Simulated scan of single mutants.
Amino acid sequence: MSIDAPSVPALSGTTTAADQPAVLPYGVLVPSQVHFDDLDALNMLHNARYPLLVERAWSAYWEALGWSYEGDWNAAEDACNAVKELRISYERPVVRSGEYAVHLWLDRLGTTGLTYGFRYCSADGAMTYARGTRVLVRLDPGTLRPAPWSERFRAEALPLLRPAG
Rank of each mutant, 00 (worst) to 15 (best):
D4G: 01
D4H: 14
S7W: 11
V8D: 00
L11R: 15
S12F: 11
S12Q: 14
G13L: 02
T14S: 13
A18K: 10
G27C: 06
S32D: 09
V34D: 03
V34W: 02
R49W: 03
L52P: 00
R56N: 09
W58C: 03
W58M: 09
S59M: 15
E70K: 15
A76E: 05
E77L: 14
D78C: 11
K84R: 14
L86T: 14
L86D: 01
I88H: 07
P93R: 05
P93L: 09
V95P: 00
V95M: 13
S97H: 13
S97N: 06
G98C: 05
G98M: 04
H103V: 02
L109A: 03
T111E: 11
T111S: 12
G113E: 03
G113I: 00
Y116N: 10
G117N: 09
F118W: 13
C121G: 00
A123H: 11
D124T: 05
Y129I: 09
G132L: 09
T133H: 10
T133A: 09
L136E: 08
R138K: 13
L139F: 10
L139R: 05
P141S: 08
T143V: 06
T143W: 08
R145V: 01
P148Y: 10
R152P: 00
L158T: 15
P159Y: 09
L161V: 06
